[in-house]
Design a protein around this nucleic acid. Structure first.
Lengths: 236, 236
DNA sequence: CGGCATCCGTGACGATACTG
DNA sequence: CAGTATCGTCACGGATGCCG
């Protein structure tokens, strides 16, 4: 029945904290449930609606659609229609949306201790380990793409490119990070080096409990590749 | 239809994302509405229930009580009963809770551009400006307490103490920050220097649009005090 | 008076069904 | 494949009441 709903109040009503505070303003934008996890997904590259829904188990279809609409309106994501061959559209982060990487990194570092326990109900995706790993790969001097192989799957990380880990205090204040992806899901188109490790080692690296050099020496990381980046990873 | 009716799980029911991901785990803890803003308040020092309720306009009494209970249970805050003279109890952050400072700082930096507009419905508290200001004061070499005077009120910041801004990439990975407060609401017990500025300048400093030296030279910051810290602030 | 607990209306959320 | 429609449930916001 055409019950006359308020026509304009569709999604216009966004609940705000109404505080003149930078943190509160951020939470007005990204404080809703699922929003930051959608950003986490899109940090790994452009994704289709169905991909997002598959990698965010538990989110309902309408909430996902609503979030994407809100995020598009607030300038966090853009929706791009792919050329005819693939009649689909993908969502990708804007530069503004990509600027949330330091927030996600800080959350990931703080939440890392909670990963000590792996509950049977937990979903897992390989690229979720990319963010913690970024800090461990941050000190590399050579630039290139590292392909990471875990038991859970693979992803690739672009390292050495000016500011990788970001958020830092010392370096230049993040101006133009561009929309450039720092990491991506799946294998790399062209990898300068390949590493294989398990999730546990990956997390230990991210927390700083283990250094890259130690892990390589112990054989807990297997490095392959013959470029300068691979050599640096081997500690040569 | 299989109903998953949880019987009598009164307040134990906490909604989890059920993902083996550090970011998702963090959001399981602090992703609920108001939680991070309560942390923001407590970063300025121990607070009573009524103080929290006063500085978080819009939060309902039961939600505040519920959050505090949850946060106490998850080890973010502790409740301490004050000695007889003041028959009250205060909430304060644990070390774990204090570790959220980098998260708040990242959110504050990302959300700073949204403060360009100051809406008439916005509440304001002076100590909300402390977090953005931390980054601007981060490079100081002398240690001490800076008392900050804004039109909206005053607060004080402890600077130069090893890691002030925190979260950084270069420096030591944050181990023991102790429960030590980095800043606090109201005037300082003992201030090594005093600065007076307005909120706009404070925000510009936090965003790096303006350096401390420039602002002092322009007279947009008035520095008083005679110790080495005050001298450094003056650019001497 | 500070520190909540209770009640209630609204809206956000989660699951499923359905459609272009 | 990419959402929209519908519905039940729960969390949230506001007000009030209780109790030390």
């Amino acid at each position: 029945m055409p019950r006359q709903q308020q026509p304009a109040t569709r999604s216009a009503r966004r609940r705000s904290y109404d505080q003149f505070c930078a943190t509160a303003r951020s939470l007005d934008s990204v404080g809703d449930r699922w929003t930051l996890l959608i950003v986490r997904e899109l940090l790994a590259g452009p994704r289709r609606y169905t991909d997002l829904h598959a990698d965010l188990p538990g989110v309902s279809t309408d909430v996902l659609a609503s979030r994407l609409k809100d995020m598009e309106q607030s300038g966090l994501v853009t929706r791009r229609r792919l050329p005819p061959p693939a009649a689909a559209s993908v969502y990708e982060l804007t530069e503004r949306g990509h600027g949330l990487l330091p927030v996600l990194a800080a959350l990931a570092e703080w939440g890392a201790p909670a990963l000590a326990e792996r509950r049977p109900t937990d979903a897992v995706r390989a690229h979720w380990f990319a963010l913690p790993l970024l800090r461990a790969l941050d000190g590399l001097t050579h630039e290139g793409v590292v392909e990471v192989h875990l038991d859970e799957g693979e992803f690739h990380v672009h390292v050495g490119g000016a500011m990788a880990g970001a958020g830092g205090g010392a370096g230049g204040r993040g101006s133009a990070m561009a929309g450039a992806a720092v990491y991506g899901d799946g294998p790399a188109a062209h990898a300068d080096a390949r590493i294989a490790l398990d999730a546990e080692v990956c997390l230990a690296l991210g927390q700083g409990e283990l250094t890259l050099a130690e892990a390589v020496e112990d054989g807990r990381i297997e490095v392959s590749g013959d470029g300068p980046l691979a050599a640096e990873l081997r500690g040569e």
